[in-house]
Design a protein around this nucleic acid. Structure first.
Length: 303
RNA sequence: GGCAGGUUGCCCGAGUGGCCAAAGGGAGCUGACUGUAAAUCAGCCGCGCAAGCUACGGGAGUUCGAAUCUCUCACCUGCCA
């Protein structure tokens, strides 16, 4: 039990085995875990997000878990602020911060010096109405007029990103492209691992996991959350497994099909996660089924 | 037993003589990614570097040319018995 004076990051696709590794690691290095999973931020979203139950946390302190109501809007900026506070507090206490999760942007927001320009609900809402009325192409053309660089970087049909770019421009008066990030420099002393497995293995684990979630009562969990406003949640209602269970509850889908859809959606999510992680060369890739996994992580982290 | 309809690529499904390797969707693969990120969006998607090859239930025909027409076999589906 000796703390390591640096941030340990454990990234990797869903169902690879990040949480288990993080727990083992925390026990070895006097660590505390900071969640970097966008959906585990939500209170009550437990089964479907594969959140480690309190009684299985082996006494390890976890941060950034259960901090939002299902009706609340998740934002990277808020997460970035709070997660960094957690990291710094842990370091101040001479313990080891372990950042664990699969949400690439969230992870990145803590690790790197990203600065997120402001947001404004009114501006955003107005743009979203325009998006609905005029369509993404029209807005993209407008963006090209005021910020050609941003327009070139954003696909014309990607309404969400076009809206955000226009929002930033109206709010800051500066082009969105001016705030584009420069990645690749750690904000903290840190080491970054990415845990993965063979695709066939991972896909199989996803299949098993969805069955287990159903057995553990995912449908009931979603029913309960629906009563407290899950359907109105902009972020939470879109979570894998949750959107499908809502469809079942509302009679739009049969459970077996909903399970298959959840598995397929999760598989595709994994592919997206990997494409995010692959582009950053700072990561040390590890195989979750490596028998010496923990030892290798410890060696690298202490090195 | 009679009448009618159907069988299309991994799946669903359009296509009724050339413009069809075959619309569209799903799955799959690859990628983008700065305040919704488990989101949003893009490209690829029969085989082959190519010439070309193989493909629309099986077989046989008609035709310069067939997924599309004819015959036949197999299986499936409605209506009448």
């Amino acid at each position: 039990m000796s703390a390591i004076d640096r941030l340990i990051v454990i990234a990797g696709p869903t169902a690879a085995g990040k949480s288990e590794l993080a727990l083992q690691l925390a026990e070895e290095v006097d660590g505390e875990i900071i969640n970097a999973d966008a959906l585990q931020l939500y209170r009550g979203m437990n089964i479907g997000t594969a959140k480690i139950p309190v009684q299985e946390r082996r006494g390890i302190t976890h941060h950034q878990l259960d901090v939002l109501d299902v009706t609340e809007y998740a934002t990277v900026a808020a997460y970035q602020r709070d997660a960094r506070v957690a990291v710094e507090n842990i370091l101040d206490r001479c313990r080891t911060p372990i950042l664990v999760g699969g949400s690439g942007l969230y992870l990145q927001s803590v690790i790197d010096d990203l600065k997120f320009p402001a947001t404004d609900p009114a501006v955003r809402a107005a743009l979203e109405i325009e998006l609905g009325q005029l369509g993404p192409l029209t807005l993209h053309t407008r963006l090209a007029g005021v910020d050609p660089l941003a327009a070139a970087a954003i696909q014309p049909l990607n309404g969400r990103k076009v809206v955000r770019a226009l929002e930033v421009i109206t709010l800051t008066g500066r082009p969105f492209s001016a705030s584009m990030p420069v990645r690749g420099k750690f904000r903290y002393r840190g080491i970054w691992f990415c845990v993965d497995r063979e695709t066939a293995d991972l896909d199989h684990r996803i299949e098993l996991r969805v069955h287990q979630m159903i057995e553990q009562g995912l449908l009931e969990e979603v029913r309960g959350l629906a009563r407290v406003g899950l359907r109105e949640g902009v972020t939470a209602a879109r979570a894998l497994g949750y959107q499908q269970m809502l469809d079942v509850i509302d009679g739009r889908l049969e459970l077996p099909q909903a399970m298959l859809d959840t598995m397929a959606g999760t598989r595709r999510y994994v592919r997206r996660q990997r494409s995010w992680f692959r582009r950053d060369e700072r990561q040390i890739w590890l195989r979750a089924d490596d028998p010496n996994l923990l030892a290798e992580v410890l060696t690298a982290a202490r090195g």
